[in-house]
Write a protein that binds this DNA or RNA. Structure first.
Length: 255
DNA sequence: ATGGCTACTCCTAGTAGA
């Protein structure tokens, strides 16, 4: 079984790239973030033609998450259960093949110390509480998405540049670690110890060409899935295509 | 060097992303 996560940075702008990648890779599940459109604008028919079912939690202009699956799936959660009306569309979940799949788009945080940064830290605290309340770490649970946090120094191309800054500040990393402590393992790190593997590169200044990126997109798995995870990798290919997303897909395979 | 690039919008200039 192949489960992938990809921040597509607008599903409407990225539709040719996403369909091409689906055709070439045929994952069982694709979790997407930043679809940037409401559910009625989501191109579900294009995916249905390719044999995928969709659950979406869209929003105009900003945020928005969706999950594509090869067999019919049912939405489990759409945002946090205690969300107020009009809250950001940043979390959607489903069950597939006996696995609880939670797809998140963690807030960016803009700048350390800003209101948005505070919102990010609170959102991450709620994510941990959400797992405490609704899931069991002894069952197969997979949390994936754009976490907007690089966990370790080896996940950052230039530690001196990023130290203490947004996406790599200590409080963000601690908040993310708290989520991990619920009972998750970073699937990518089960297979690769090296530095220099990134999932996002700035559009500007030739960052991709120079491999100046961050590993901020992740697939985290609960204990029962660890032994089944045969490989997890970052597919840099679509980042080389025309009109790419600034993020690359992360793919996890299970037996 | 605070730029660089991309996508969005009832505001095509301003906001947001990371």
């Amino acid at each position: 079984m192949k489960i992938a996560t990809w921040n597509v940075n607008s599903i409407l702008a990225r539709l040719p790239n996403v369909t091409r990648w689906l055709d070439e890779n045929r994952p069982d599940v694709l979790c997407m973030q930043e679809i940037k459109c409401t559910d009625d604008k989501f191109p579900a028919d294009v995916f249905r033609e390719r044999g995928y079912y969709c659950v979406t939690f869209g929003q105009q202009t900003y945020n928005g998450v969706a999950i594509l699956t090869r067999t019919e799936c049912y939405r489990e959660q759409r945002g946090y259960p205690d969300d107020v009306e009009g809250a950001h569309a940043r979390l959607v979940s489903t069950q597939f093949g006996g696995i609880h799949i939670v797809n998140v788009y963690v807030p960016n945080g803009q700048m350390v110390g800003s209101e948005k940064y505070q919102f990010k830290l609170e959102w991450l605290a709620r994510l941990r509480a959400f797992f405490d309340t609704h899931y069991d770490p002894l069952k197969p649970v997979l949390l994936c998405g754009d976490f907007n946090v690089a966990p370790e120094e080896r996940d950052v191309h230039d530690v001196r540049l990023w130290q203490g800054r947004i996406l790599f500040s200590d409080p963000e990393r601690a908040a993310m670690q708290k989520v991990k402590d619920w009972g998750f393992t970073d699937a990518f790190r089960l297979h690769t110890e090296d530095a220099g593997h990134y999932s996002w590169w700035d559009y500007r200044a030739g960052a991709f060409r120079r491999n100046q990126g961050l590993r901020i997109d992740h697939v985290w798995i609960s204990k029962p899935l660890v032994a089944r995870n045969t490989n997890t990798w970052i597919d840099m290919n679509p980042r080389t295509w025309e009109r790419p997303s600034d993020h690359a897909p992360v793919v996890a395979e299970f037996e």
